[in-house]
Every structure is written in structure tokens, then in C-alpha cells.
């Protein structure tokens, strides 16, 4: 991501206070960077430059290392997520039962690709590797709510039900 194209940071003083507390908690703990990033993402929803910089300064770790860790693990996000986070399981059990078709149907319905967020900020799509709900394969989640035994049609219906709630 180019420096110039970074989205505007809208952190609040309250969030900053929470982050400072988190940093203080993990400051002298061996290997404290990962838990700090996890909790920071919990506070802000993603890990923008400003947040990573505060973490680097607070923990006394080079920013390059913080950024390196944040971009290594797939659960850390550098961009804000949608209000509703859709996640389609692409674990093997779901895949052999057609999870790829479900993902494609949702992408088509929302007009975005996996990893992207709709322009109105309402939805973002991710894929994940096995939620462990293989008995219900194929599975997708919206905001953590599990929808099992999906078909492309039923998945799109689920999305639409969230859409109608918004209007």
C-alpha cells in the first residue's frame, strides 16, 4: 500500500487509551508483539499505520518488524473491514462439497472479490481455512454467525437478508 493511498485514520482518544493499556500489559512480556497486535485489531478493527507506529514505539520494536508480522499472518488486516464480515470456509471438507461455487456466487452478488470491501463499507468477503464445522459443510459465516449446508442460492439469500436489514 502506498503511503499516499492510505485511508484516513479515524481513531478516537478512547481507542488510543485502550491501546496504551494493551501496550503496557504486553510491554515486558516475551513475545508480546502478537498478542498486542491481536488486541489492537480488536480495538480498531484493523491495523493502520498510526496504530502500528504506536505499537512499535510502545514495545520498543522496529516498525519494520511490526509491519512484517502484521503482513505475515492472514488474520491481521491493514484495511478496514466491512460492517458485515462474510467468511466462506474453503477447508477441504467444504471444498469437496462445492464451497468455491458459494464464494463465487457471493462475489458476483456483491460485485467484489475476496479480500475486498464493498464501496459503501457494508460487506467484506474473506475466505478461511476450516472453522471445524465440517459436519455442516459447506459453511459460511456472517459476523461470526454460522450458516451451514449452504448452496450458492441460499448463501446469496443470507446476504440479501442482511441487506434488507440495512435499508
Amino acid at each position: 500500500m502506498d503511503n499516499e493511498n492510505r485511508p484516513v485514520f479515524r481513531g478516537t482518544p478512547k481507542q488510543e487509551r485502550e491501546l496504551k493499556k494493551v501496550i503496557e500489559k504486553h510491554k515486558n512480556q516475551p513475545g508480546g508483539l502478537m498478542p498486542t497486535l491481536q488486541e489492537a485489531q480488536g480495538i480498531y478493527g484493523y491495523l493502520p499505520y498510526e496504530v502500528q507506529k504506536m505499537i512499535a514505539e510502545g514495545l520498543g520494536v522496529p516498525l519494520s518488524e511490526v509491519y512484517g508480522v502484521a503482513t505475515f499472518y492472514s488474520q491481521f488486516s491493514l484495511t478496514p473491514k466491512g460492517e458485515h464480515r462474510i467468511s466462506v470456509c474453503l477447508g477441504t471438507a467444504c471444498y469437496v462439497k462445492g464451497a468455491d461455487k458459494i464464494l463465487a456466487a457471493i462475489e458476483e452478488r456483491l460485485g467484489i472479490k475476496t479480500g475486498e470491501c464493498t464501496p459503501d463499507g457494508l460487506f467484506s468477503i474473506e475466505s478461511c481455512r476450516c472453522l471445524g464445522a465440517c459436519g455442516l459443510a459447506p459453511v459460511m459465516t456472517v459476523d461470526g454467525e454460522v450458516y451451514g449446508k449452504c448452496t450458492p442460492e441460499s448463501a446469496v439469500k443470507v446476504i440479501e437478508s442482511y441487506l434488507s436489514k440495512e435499508v
Binding site: 513475545g31 508483539l33 502478537m34 497486535l37 491481536q38 505475515f72 499472518y73 492472514s74 491481521f76 478461511c128
Partner: peptide
Amino acid sequence: IRLGAGAFVCGEETALMTSIEGKRG
């Protein structure tokens, strides 16, 4: 308890320990 953050390679023992150390796994 330490939580992973989405990296299959961290199931490899040395990568897992590197990850607990707070680094790229």
C-alpha cells in the same frame, strides 16, 4: 495461551515457537 493469527506453517514446530516469540512464523 497464545493465539495463532492465520498461518498454517505455524503448525511446524520451529515456526510455532518463532510465532510464540512474537515474530513472523
